[in-house]
């Protein structure tokens, strides 16, 4: 089970969280002007990165807040977690 550091509550077991998919997928500010292909990209297309991946988590059974994380999908190791709205940090080097 993963140990996930909520930026508000600290380290908690994975079972307290829900995974929210790829992070930084911005909804169009003017939805009426967006083409079908742009909607498709927003709704369905995902980078599905093998490596360092930015993703959303929600501390469902804790503070209930969304936050973002950088995680290596080849090791499941969390590099950093950060608050929603903050820009994606540069991935810190970590020794395993």
């Amino acid at each position: 089970m993963l140990l996930i550091e909520c930026p508000y509550c600290g380290k908690r077991p994975e079972l307290e969280f829900s995974h929210g998919g790829q992070a930084h997928v911005a909804r169009a500010r003017n939805p009426a002007d967006v083409s079908a292909q742009e909607w498709t990209d927003f709704l369905y297309m995902r980078s599905n990165i093998k490596g360092v991946h930015a993703e959303r988590w929600r501390h469902t059974h804790g503070c209930g807040r969304f936050f973002n994380a950088l995680r290596d999908t080849t090791t499941d190791h969390f590099l950093v977690t950060y608050k929603a709205g903050e820009p994606r940090p540069t991935a810190p080097k970590v020794g395993l």
């Binding site: 089970m1 993963l2 994975e14 079972l15 969280f17 829900s18 995974h19 599905n48 093998k50 991946h53 993703e55 995680r71 999908t73 080849t74 090791t75 499941d76």
Partner: peptide, 13 residues
């Protein structure tokens, strides 16, 4: 598992 991964493992729970 709840999260995307390429590890071929996953959590025991």
């Amino acid at each position: 598992d709840a999260y995307t991964s390429y590890t071929q493992r996953g959590g025991l729970h």
